[in-house]
């Protein structure tokens, strides 16, 4: 099996639209999004890059065009080298990239994570749900315009309440029980243990 760098000329003749990507460590190429699947399949089947090491995306920032880049890192179990493939998403507003789950089942969770964090869709992915954030979360947090401190969101209280027969109570610091606010909340109602006010430290508990 040839060293990863040696295969670049062969790839360039097979894929004329492929361009070399500046890289200090591993051989790296840029490929148009529509040809990414074919290139990755060639790399896997003919050049021994059987292991999908990593799959992620990079956001170039709100002003950049093309804004979103999807990056695959492949590892060859025979040549013991990496290969980096990058493809830009054509549309900056609604980025999409053909799914590579038919090539590697490993891409399943990676693509779900990219959808969750960057909002890039993967046509061809059978089950593109959020993976780290909860279903119904409205933002894509790794986009550059998303603030580090986060944005307040509605928790899916109503949906949970519809599914489970229990009443959903707000968390203590979100106005729920065990936290008394001045004047607003009746402590006796909020704190069950405070209901019996007939005795305390100063007044002894009456005999039963």
């Amino acid at each position: 099996m040839p060293a990863p760098t040696a295969i670049l000329p062969a790839l360039q003749t097979r894929f004329p639209r492929l361009t070399l990507r500046a890289s200090a460590d591993h051989p790296a190429v840029n490929i148009p999004a529509d040809e990414a699947g074919a290139l990755l399949k060639t790399l896997r089947d003919e050049f021994g890059f059987a292991h999908l090491a990593d799959l992620t995306a990079v956001d170039g920032g709100p002003g950049a065009t093309p804004r979103f880049t999807v990056v695959w890192h492949l590892f060859s179990l025979t040549a013991h080298g990496y290969f980096r493939v990058a493809a830009h998403c054509a549309d900056d507003a609604e980025p999409a990239m053909p799914s590579t789950t038919p090539l590697w089942p490993a891409a399943d969770w990676h693509e779900r994570e990219i959808w969750d964090m960057f909002g890039i869709t993967f046509p061809g992915h059978a089950d593109l749900r959020r993976i780290l954030m909860w279903d119904g979360y409205p933002y894509h947090p790794l986009r550059k315009e998303f603030p580090l401190a986060g944005l307040p969101t509605e928790l899916p209280d109503a949906e949970i309440a519809a599914e489970i027969p229990t009443k959903v109570i707000a968390a203590p610091m979100a106005g729920g029980p065990f936290v008394a606010t001045t004047g607003e909340l009746n402590l006796g109602e909020a704190e069950p243990r405070a209901k019996d006010e007939s005795w305390n430290e100063r007044r002894e508990k009456p005999d039963a």
Partner: peptide, 20 residues
């Protein structure tokens, strides 16, 4: 400036960092 991908053989498996 640039990008690098490095993987190390950690106890749980391969831990990789892709730094841009």
């Amino acid at each position: 400036p640039g990008e690098a991908y490095f993987e190390a053989e950690n106890p749980k498996g391969i831990l990789g960092f892709y730094v841009v």
